[in-house]
Write a protein that binds this DNA or RNA. Sequence first.
DNA 1: TTTTAGACTGACTAATCAGTCAGTACTTGT
DNA 2: ACAAGTACTGACTGATTAGTCAGTCTAAAA
Lengths: 199, 199
Amino acid sequence: MTKNNVSKKDEILNAAIILFAEQGFSNTSITEVAKATNASTANIFYHFKNKEELFLAALENVKQGIITRFDEYFRDRDFTNGLQMMEEIISYYLYLAGSMEQWFLLLHSHYPYRLALVNNVCRDHLEQTYNSLVEIFEQAVVRGKKDGSIADVDSRKTALVIFSMVEGVVRFKIYNLYDAGALFNELIKSCNKILKYKE
Amino acid sequence: MTKNNVSKKDEILNAAIILFAEQGFSNTSITEVAKATNASTANIFYHFKNKEELFLAALENVKQGIITRFDEYFRDRDFTNGLQMMEEIISYYLYLAGSMEQWFLLLHSHYPYRLALVNNVCRDHLEQTYNSLVEIFEQAVVRGKKDGSIADVDSRKTALVIFSMVEGVVRFKIYNLYDAGALFNELIKSCNKILKYKE
DNA sequence: TTTTAGACTGACTAATCAGTCAGTACTTGT
DNA sequence: ACAAGTACTGACTGATTAGTCAGTCTAAAA
């Protein structure tokens, strides 16, 4: 496997991520992917068994990208407490959704969730992606409860609600509905209230 | 225009909503819509200029459906205060998203938001739908601020954040990610905290 | 009874689709 | 030098696609 071959396969994969994200699975033809990478359609089917496999490879790439980015982010960061950690996680999440919009467009499209019902590989990719993300939010809650910056709330459920709130804002952003920037301060404020008070 | 003709057009429209919602625009063929309604493809193009017009009609139908349902809901309801009103709105929103899943699947798919960039009719439908929904949430906040059940928060932005939180949970539900029922109590609790406290 | 108009269809088309296959170019180990 | 395997392509296929068109059927108005 030469250096050039690997990079051609990656080139196809990266083009596929962008096209699938922007246009959807069904509305993206192999011919389009081929044109975007100066490859023949036959070459795409040489590297990927079929169109569905190409999509699964794209989804796995997105999963790995998100997990890796958060790993790197945590590696060279330290937080004063759990509440501040949550604030920074949300901040980084919104930053990532802005700079890697294709990843989140792909994750927000309906196709993979339908495919997951009949394809275990797809289901696993989605499960792993969301488990990793929710776990990150949950870790902040658990830590905050220990250091006293967060009230005695249900860690998992609170993490899920805050995650769904952030995902809602991300969806508004990538679908051009509302500006996430304008909502950022309100998002952090609301998050603080959810975490600081007990009921 | 006889009674039968109208109902055939409506039959086609209703089938289109379900198919577009479940399979997406590109992955739904006119042939499929025709088969589902025992019509010829030519008949579909007799009632609707082209596939895109059929989609726009479906989107408008969803918009009208949501607005009408909320109008009816408010017509025979009275709330003790703004905070309770918000709780009931969220409750009804989740109920509606469960019973009329196709509507929300259609609104959550990426296609209409891409189409809205180049098609004003589509953009207007989406804008009107979301304006109506956010306004409902905002009315509850405004009322709660007047009657004292809600703290002095930014009505619009708070409404948007709560709406995005609810929409996030709805997305988890219709994409089979997490059970909305299990998150309902946590959602209401979080919403109360956001509305009760001032920061 | 004849006219007219709306609802509807079968048969068609040109384009596009995912995927195949036989064969070529290039590299690398022996 | 040669064998072998990897990367890649042009030319193809059968199926499916959105959309057209000429013409049929029905019911009501004239």
